[in-house]
Structure formats: structure tokens, C-alpha cells
Design a protein around this nucleic acid. Structure first.
Length: 875
RNA sequence: GCCCCGGUGGCGGAAUCGGUAGACGCAACGGACUUAAAAUCCGUUGUCCGAAAGGGCGUGCCGGUUCGAGUCCGGCCCGGGGCACCA
């Protein structure tokens, strides 16, 4: 064994061994094997952006630790990897460099695959998939056509951002302050036909089944539930005043949805969205209103923008009638009403809704209180109007409904409305159908042909896949597919006449909504899925960023249920257990080069200046010794120049060091702050581990351990070793707190270093402790432990060695330390027999001199004894 | 705006079911080794009083429950994330 730890040599040796021995190739268990014996561990697959970033490394290290751990615990493990390969960045790169997105993407995949392999992740690479591969996306198309047949997929118009200069549709991210990112032109809204998936048909089940997901983080389930946004409420119809009958739609009413029907008598205005048919009809007769409506429609449709902008509106010039009082209620167009929720119209009850309140104040609309709190504060909402009273309470000034409490009031009003044919109870979801059409080139083609005679015609299954040409180079103006006759021109599958192929592609969320199924059967060219999916699914552990907590996970759950309902798969939910890992942050440093123009410096080139109390007081750039500004911590990004390249670190210090740092520095769900010193610390620890094993084996083979022959110190180390094994097993297997697992092994190694090793039995205890330390660390730092295990005399390779369990006899203690409090304050630590009863513990506690100091002369009022831990004497 | 999460030494974090606050690591300081530096090893390190023994204070702020609160409850303050065409 070499005295020096050489990460490059160690990692080469370990990786070569795993590859040659095909250690991590997953094979379905023979029929009859217990389903619980399989462990499908999946990390969210990366977008092939060019190079791995630290967020990837963290994600895949977590998955790898669990994969290796569960394999050692005897489970049949599958950990696959693939590429979420369609998307906008490839088109942006093409615009910039003139390289076809396909070439850029495949080059990136090749490079990033080498990076993943250098990190030693236990992937079964035979199952690798890329979503831009026709062998993959043909099944997107195939299932889309099935959904179309079933009515789950349908076509309707939707609103997109339109750049009038580039004549192209923009993603939200390409719209900066209302202008196109490349042209700077004011972005317009356009309505175009698009395909939607009816996820709302599954809203109830998607909500209800969250309860099945007992191993998902509560906050993710809460976010999903809020996203689905089930509201029990009422639909209320306000009839038009007779004079305005010609303006409105056929049903002669303005419909709203509200969860607060009990406040109906407080409605002092109606507010409709700018896109509402009524607004459009009124605007057509009123140029001023038209201007306002146009302005609203130009604005952002992002909910965050709508909700924070100043609430503005304009009366459309007429009123509707209150369903009970018959009084006219003026109708306004308001910029805070979303056309995409409910009816696109609300009744404005300023006294009891915060948004309506703000709007009424700004537009001098009356405020009428119709709910008082149960505790009687009727004055809560009275001039001079401080705030809306939005809590449920008791109805007042509400005609026959006065005096009813919230629920009773809503029920009674709903009944009365229904009798008049002006409303009913209804459930409303916030969830909207999923628009999947993208006016982009680098995505999965939507398999539709447009024929002048036959209309929209699905591409027959026998013509799938509709292949995306891979040699086009987008130039930023429009979708290049539109300019590619060989793609667009085709024959109508129904009548055979010349027709036009659909050039929209699918949202990349479609690609990622079922890839986890395909890993089970990636080689099947005949079907989307097969029976191997039934063996491996559901995913036992899914790991990914919290940023996917809503959309990706919800779409995947929806897609799974659609496939289940077609009988393609048997599961209800795709991911049994979910771990959402935190982001990787690093310091941001900059200098203001000109007003508003910052130059960012990489933290590697910055030195922190410390004050007298070791606190940071500033930072200087090492190249010129001049100060730079600190802008806090942020996610690693090119724009802030605060990234750390995993590749450079792996080459310098090895994959194990990077992995260990990530696992040790923070628990997986929290954000992780990058620290160069922390990385050095991880490297130092691995070297200490190496040295400890080296020193131990230099002294020759240790004799067999004889537990009965150990002295107190040896017994104590042995106890610590087994306690550490138990803790690490629990920390990785149940708690997923890898940081505390590593800390425990560090403590064990510190204790090994302190043991006097002259005697044979001491060496036997150290041998066992080192074996346990190496085993416990192996999921985190698999390369160096692979080599050290061999050096310690391990016969099998460590990755396929069975995880040990702690010996209960080694954990036994003769005496234990108990802390003694007096009135809740710590006063002493006493050592008592492990099996001492309360009387003995009490006697020992009161005998302590320091305890006596605080107890003497006072009566003991209460004596609390928590066996084995703590005594509290209350005087 | 709405929803979600977080706040503990100089720093990252630990304290798992209400029971020893600060494990482990980093940084800093002192020492050993060295011609020197690096590396390594040993020691100190929440804060205040004290020579020490020991004691006071201390987990964002205010209040509550409890023998006992970082942990539970109520009310605030501050920071971060998501909000439907980035993935």
C-alpha cells in the first residue's frame, strides 16, 4: 500500500473495476422475488447544457449514496441516467454560434457523460436515453394521438408572446420588461391555436392521491394542493339591465365565481378581465375603453405581475342587476382580474376582499359592510376605511340572510339563487389545462397534418415517428421548420391531397413526464412500455430540485394516471418517495464599473478580509489587491461569475473529495454554501483516513477480536464503532442526513487515533473500527473506500459486500452519565450504574456536592427522572 | 400580491419524540516539527465575571404553555424560493 493518497490512481482503479465487473448493471429479479427487494433510485435527468454544474453533482451524489447503500443492504438496485435533451438553450446556442441544436446537444451529452463517469456514479448506462432521440419521442407522439382520440388532448386558442420584429413567439423568459430579448421590440399578445391536455379532468384525483404520498415532503404536497387550488364556492349570475340586452351573450347574465357568496349584499361593483367578451364588446363602441383594454392585454399575464401591479380599471358604461335586490351594479374592466380563473369576472366586495378594497379606494367606489366578526367588532370595516375584513363572520344588512354565520349564509344564498335560476354551488379549480404547443424548432413534433379538405388530421401510427430534421439552424426569427418545405409539405393521410404538417413542437415537460418509465424498457422498439415497467415502478426514491416541486411532478403524476387508465401501466403514482435537494450557492463579488454596470469576479480570485473577531469585513481581488463589493450568496451562474467547475476539482482533488464535501456540508434538503476551505477539509479528512489505514496495516495483520479480553478503553472504542455503524445506517437509510453520518465517522476516526495500540487486542479493535469506518463512508466516497477495503483484507469488493449491523452486545455499557438539573438548570453530571432505579439515581444526584449547594435547606417539590438521561430536582 | 421554506458561535452546521445548546468541520489563535515555508501533529476557541472551582447570560423579536422550550402555541421582524412558454 502506498503511503500517499493519490486520488487519480485510486479512482481509475475503482471505476475500471466496476465497469469490468458490470457491478451496477440492473437485471429484473426472477419471477416470485419480493417486490420490496427492488430499489429504483432516480435523480432528475439533466438538461445537456454543456458542462455539469454543482447542482447536478449534488443531485447525483445523493442518488448515488442511496443506490450504493441500498445495494449493500441487499436490494436489487436500478439507477439509470438520461438526457432531457430538447429545449430552448440549444436554439439560443444555435443563434449565437450557427451550430445546429442537434449537434450542440449531442456534443454536450458526450462531454457531460464523461463528467458523470469521472464522478463514479453507479449508473446502469445500458439504459441511457435522450429525449431528442426519435426512438424515444415517437412514444410522446403515439400517446398524444391516443389522448387526442380520447378527448384528453384537444385544440383551442391560447395567448402567446409575439415579437413583431423577429416575427416569432417568445418564451416568458425571453420577455424582458415587456420587450423582446433580442430585438427590444414591445411584445404583443397573440391568440393562436394550440394543443392542450385535459389535466383538469384529473384534478380531483391528483389532489386526493397526494394523501397516498406519505414519503413526500409536506411542503411539496402543500404546493401541489395549492396549485390544483380546489375551491368550494358559488357561481352567481347577475342579469343584465334591460337596456343593455344587445351587448351581452346569449344567456343574458354576467357570471362570476366566488367563495364568499355570503358577501353578495356587499357587492358594489363588478370587475371583468380585459379579455372578457363583455369588455371586448363594450370596447368596440368606446375608443377610450378600447385603449385601456388594449393596454391591459399588452401587459404581462404572469400571475406575479398581475398581482403586484397597481390596481386600475375603467367603467364599461353600464350595469348589471343584483340577483336579490335588483339594484344596478356598475361593471368595470379591471387589470387584476384573471381571464384564466373562474369566469374571468368577479363581484367586487370591497369591505371583505383585500383586492376589491384597494380597487374601490382607488376608484371612489362605495364600501358596504355586510359581515361582522363573531366577537362583535362590527366596526372593523367602517369609514375612514383602514382595511378589508376578510375573515368569515356573521352576515349583516343582507336581507333575509342577516344573522346567518358564514356556512349557513352561503348555503341559504346558494339555495335562493338556484330557485331563481341565477346560481348554484360549484367547485372551481385553479389548475388549468396544460398547453403543450410550442412554436419552437428543437422539440418533439406534434404529429398532426393540416389539410384544407379534411382539417386537422392525426398522423397514422404507421408513419410514426414524425422525425424532426436535425440539420436546421434557427436564426431567431420564427421557427425554422416553417421554412423547411421538406418537413412542412406532405400528403394528407386521409385524402392524399397536398397538406401542411404541423410545425409546433411539444413542451419539453412532455418529454420528462414519462422518462422514468422508459428506463425500465429503453431497448423496446415495439412498444412504449412493457412488463419490466411493472417490476421496477414506482420509483422508490426520486431526487431533484425543489424548483420542480409543482410542474414537472404534477405533469408526471397526470401522465402516469392517463397511461394507467389506458391499461399501459399498473401504478397510480410514479414516485413513492421524494427528496428535494437544496440549491448550491456561492459568494457573489463585483465592482461597479459604471453606473448600473457591474463586473463580477469569481470567488476563486477573491480573498476575504477578516476583522479582529474573525468576522468578514471586506474582500479584495487577489490580482490587484483592491477591494471588491460583496453581493451575498446566490446560485452559481455564468452571469454572476460565481460558478465552480466540478471538472477542475475532480481533476485536482478527486471525485471523492467533491462528493464528501457536498454530503458533509449541509443536509440534502437545505441550500449548500460552497466553500473552498470546506473542500480542502474534505480532502484532508480522506487523507487522514488513508493514513490511519496505512499506519494500521503497516504493523501487520491484526489478531482475531476477543470481546471478553478487552480493557475499558478498547471496549469503549468498540462500543463507539458499533454505535457509529448503527447511527450511519439510520442516518442514510431513514433520515437521509448524510452530513451527520459523515460527522459520526469523523468522531470514530478521531477516537481510533486516540487509542493506545501497543497490545494485540487493541489492534484487533482498531481493525474492526476501521472496517466499519470504511464501510460507512463507502456510499459517499466509493473509490477510496474500495481500495482501503482491499487493503484491510476485505475479500469481496466493497460495493457488493453486505452492509453490517451493529452488535448489540458491543453497545452495552456498565455505567452511564446522567445530567442533574436543579430547577431546570444544569448543576452536575453523575455516573451511575446503567440499570440504576429511580431511588438509586435520586440518592446519587442528591449526594453530589454542587447539587447540594442549590438544594440544601430547601424542600424538594418534585423529582423528574428520565431514565438514562436526565434528572431534574425541583425545589 | 398569493403560496411555500428558513433564521442557532467569526462561518457551514449538530441537538432524531419537549430533556446536557453549539457534535463534526471550516476559519482564527497558541505550540511542536522545519534553516524557512508548505504539509502534518497537539492545544484553545459562544459571551461576560472569576486565578480556579464555579456562576450569570445566550438559539431573529415580544408574549404564553411546561419541572424543563432551539424544539410546542399566539403575535411580529428579516431572508430565500415558486407563481403555468427556463428546465
Amino acid at each position: 500500500m502506498d503511503e500517499r493518497y493519490d486520488p487519480a490512481a485510486v479512482e481509475r482503479a475503482a471505476q475500471t473495476f466496476w465497469n469490468e465487473q458490470r457491478v451496477f448493471e440492473a437485471v429484473e429479479a426472477p419471477a416470485g422475488a419480493a417486490a420490496s427487494d427492488k430499489f429504483y433510485c432516480l435523480s432528475m435527468f439533466p438538461y445537456p447544457s454543456g458542462r455539469l454544474h454543482m447542482g447536478h453533482v449534488r443531485n447525483y451524489t445523493i442518488g448515488d449514496v442511496l443506490t450504493r447503500f441500498e445495494k449493500m443492504r441487499g436490494r436489487n438496485v436500478l439507477q439509470p441516467m438520461g438526457w432531457d435533451a430538447f429545449g430552448l438553450p440549444a436554439e439560443n446556442a444555435a443563434i449565437k454560434n450557427g451550430v445546429p441544436p442537434a449537434k450542440w446537444t449531442y456534443d454536450n451529452i458526450a462531454y457531460m457523460k464523461r463528467q458523470l463517469q469521472a464522478l463514479g456514479f453507479a449508473f446502469d448506462w445500458r439504459r441511457e436515453i435522450a429525449t431528442c432521440d426519435p426512438a424515444y419521442y415517437r412514444w410522446n407522439q403515439w400517446l398524444f394521438l391516443r389522448m387526442l382520440e380520447q378527448g384528453i388532448a384537444y385544440r383551442k386558442t391560447g395567448v402567446v408572446n409575439w415579437d413583431p420584429v423577429d416575427q416569432t413567439v417568445l418564451a416568458n423568459e425571453q420577455v424582458i420588461d415587456g420587450r423582446g430579448w433580442r430585438t427590444g421590440a414591445l411584445v404583443e399578445k397573440r391568440e393562436i391555436p394550440m394543443y392542450y391536455l385535459r389535466i383538469t379532468a384529473y384534478a380531483d384525483e391528483l389532489l386526493a392521491d397526494l394523501q397516498q404520498l406519505s414519503d413526500w415532503p409536506e411542503r411539496v404536497k402543500t404546493m401541489q394542493a395549492n396549485w390544483i387550488g380546489k375551491s368550494e364556492g358559488c357561481e352567481i349570475a347577475f342579469p343584465y339591465a334591460p337596456a343593455t340586452r344587445d351587448l351581452m351573450g346569449a344567456d343574458g347574465v354576467l357570471k362570476v365565481f366566488t367563495t364568499r357568496a355570503d358577501t353578495l349584499f356587499g357587492a358594489t361593483f363588478m370587475a371583468v378581465a380585459a379579455e372578457h367578451p363583455l369588455a371586448l364588446a363594450a370596447a368596440a363602441r368606446n375608443p377610450q375603453l378600447q385603449a385601456f383594454v388594449d393596454e391591459c392585454r399588452r401587459g404581462s399575464t404572469m400571475e406575479a405581475d398581475v398581482a403586484t401591479q397597481e390596481k386600475r380599471g375603467m367603467p364599461i358604461g353600464f350595469a348589471v342587476l343584483h340577483p336579490f335586490t335588483g339594484k344596478p351594479v356598475p361593471v368595470w374592466v379591471a387589470n387584476y382580474v384573471l381571464m384564466t380563473y373562474g369566469e374571468g369576472a368577479v363581484m367586487g366586495v370591497p369591505a371583505h376582499d383585500a383586492r376589491d378594497f384597494e380597487f374601490a379606494l382607488g376608484n371612489d367606489l362605495p364600501i358596504v359592510t355586510v359581515v361582522r366578526s363573531k366577537t362583535g367588532a362590527y366596526e372593523t370595516v367602517r369609514a375612514p376605511w383602514i382595511d378589508a375584513y376578510t375573515e368569515p363572520g356573521i352576515a349583516v344588512d343582507s336581507g333575509e340572510f342577516s344573522g346567518l354565520e358564514f356556512e349557513a349564509a352561503v348555503d341559504a344564498i346558494a339555495v335562493a339563487l338556484e330557485q331563481r335560476g341565477l346560481g348554484r354551488k360549484r367547485t372551481q379549480f385553479r389548475l388549468r389545462d396544460w398547453g403543450i404547443s410550442r412554436q419552437r424548432y428543437w422539440g418533439c413534433p406534434i404529429p398532426i397534418v393540416h389539410c384544407e379538405a379534411c382539417g386537422e388530421v392525426p398522423v397514422p401510427d404507421t408513419d410514426l415517428p414524425v422525425r424532426l430534421p436535425e440539420d436546421l439552424v434557427p436564426d431567431g426569427s420564427g421557427n425554422p421548420l416553417n421554412k423547411t418545405p421538406s418537413f412542412v409539405q406532405c400528403a394528407c393521410p386521409t385524402c392524399g391531397k397536398p397538406a401542411r404538417r404541423e410545425t409546433d413542437t411539444m413542451d419539453t415537460f412532455v418529454d420528462s413526464s414519462w422518462y422514468f418509465l422508459r428506463f425500465a424498457c429503453a431497448d423496446n422498439s415495439q412498444a412504449m412500455v412493457d412488463q419490466r415497467v411493472d417490476y421496477w415502478l414506482p420509483v422508490d426514491q426520486y431526487i431533484g430540485g425543489i424548483e420542480h416541486a409543482i410542474l414537472h411532478l404534477l405533469y408526471s403524476r397526470f401522465w402516469t394516471k392517463v397511461m394507467r387508465d389506458r391499461g399501459l401501466i399498473a401504478i397510480d403514482e410514479p414516485f413513492a418517495n421524494l427528496l428535494t435537494q437544496g440549491m448550491v450557492l456561492h459568494h457573489i463579488y463585483y465592482r461597479e464599473q459604471a453606473p448600473g454596470r457591474r463586473e463580477y469576479f469569481n470567488p476563486a480570485d477573491v480573498e476575504v478580509v477578516l476583522g479582529p473577531d474573525n468576522e468578514r469585513t471586506g474582500a479584495i481581488l487577489v490580482t490587484d489587491d483592491l477591494p471588491v463589493e460583496w453581493d451575498g450568496l446566490g446560485t452559481m451562474s455564468k452571469s454572476k461569475n460565481n460558478g465552480v467547475d466540478p471538472q477542475v476539482l475532480v481533476e485536482k482533488l478527486g471525485a471523492d473529495t467533491v462528493r464528501l464535501f457536498m454530503m458533509f456540508t449541509a443536509p440534502p434538503e437545505q441550500t449548500l454554501e460552497w466553500s473552498e476551505e470546506g473542500v480542502q477539509g474534505a480532502y484532508r479528512f480522506i487523507r487522514r483516513l488513508w493514513k490511519a489505514v496505512y499506519d494500521h496495516i503497516q504493523a501487520g495483520v491484526a489478531p482475531a477480536l476477543e470481546p471478553a479480553a478487552l480493557d475499558a478503553a478498547q471496549k469503549e472504542l468498540r462500543r463507539l464503532a458499533h454505535q457509529t455503524l448503527a447511527k450511519v445506517t439510520d442516518d442514510i437509510g431513514r433520515r437521509r442526513t448524510f452530513n451527520t453520518a459523515v460527522a459520526a465517522v469523523m468522531e470514530l476516526l478521531n477516537a481510533v487515533g486516540r487509542l493506545e495500540t501497543a497490545s494485540a487486542q487493541a489492534r484487533a479493535v482498531v481493525q474492526e473500527a476501521l472496517e466499519i469506518a470504511v464501510m460507512c463512508l463507502s456510499p459517499m466516497i466509493p473509490h477510496v473506500t474500495h481500495v482501503l477495503w482491499r487493503e484491510l483484507g476485505g475479500r469481496d469488493d466493497l460495493a457488493r459486500t453486505r452492509w453490517r449491523t451493529a452488535d448489540p452486545r458491543a453497545l452495552l455499557q456498565d455505567t452511564i452519565e446522567v445530567v442533574v438539573q436543579v430547577n431546570g438548570k444544569l448543576r452536575a453530571r453523575i455516573s451511575i450504574a446503567a440499570d440504576a432505579d429511580e431511588a438509586a439515581a435520586r440518592a446519587a444526584a442528591l449526594a453530589d456536592a454542587n447539587v447540594q449547594k442549590f438544594v440544601a435547606g430547601k424542600a424538594v417539590r418534585k423529582f423528574v427522572y428520565i431514565a438514562g438521561r436526565l434528572i431534574n430536582v425541583v425545589v
